[in-house]
Design a protein around this nucleic acid. Sequence first.
DNA 1: GCCAACGTTGGC
DNA 2: GCCAACGTTGGC
Length: 155
Amino acid sequence: MAWWLAKSEPDVYSIEDLKREGTTLWSGVRNYQARNYLRSMKVGEKLFFYHSVVNPVGIAGIAEVCSIAEPDPTQFDPTSEYFDPRATVDAPRWFCPRVAFVEAFDYVLPRKELMERPELEGLELLKPRSRLSVQPVSEEHFRLLYSWAKDRAKQ
DNA sequence: GCCAACGTTGGC
DNA sequence: GCCAACGTTGGC
């Protein structure tokens, strides 16, 4: 069982969009390391849904893998901004799992607050200039972050 | 297989 | 909008 964090710009796709739609294909990732993480995700694994390029940036909720990675359809679509002319149906390059909405936090955990927590030492997200849009999170960090989100929502 | 140029990411 | 860091591309 692994734990994850995936980034999305809420102007493009937010936790509220996922709440409304129920599930979505996590398509459009075009980085090999992130792709490898997406391919290793198993049904039932949880992801933090992180809002990037917004004020404030932070962890906005939770999603869950509901089906394992399949070829990302946007790579074959010439009208998509994620079209990859080097990909073919027989030899796809990009893969994406389907994820389901679990919850939207009442209190979005701001990145700024996370950076003040020494307990989060080693969290990929907080490493300087970490850019990966899909990252593993340790179970310990996942539980810690989840309980902080809950506690802050009560305040 | 090196490496310079280029494009992208993403916090600020 | 800036810009540092990083990944990718492609000529050699």
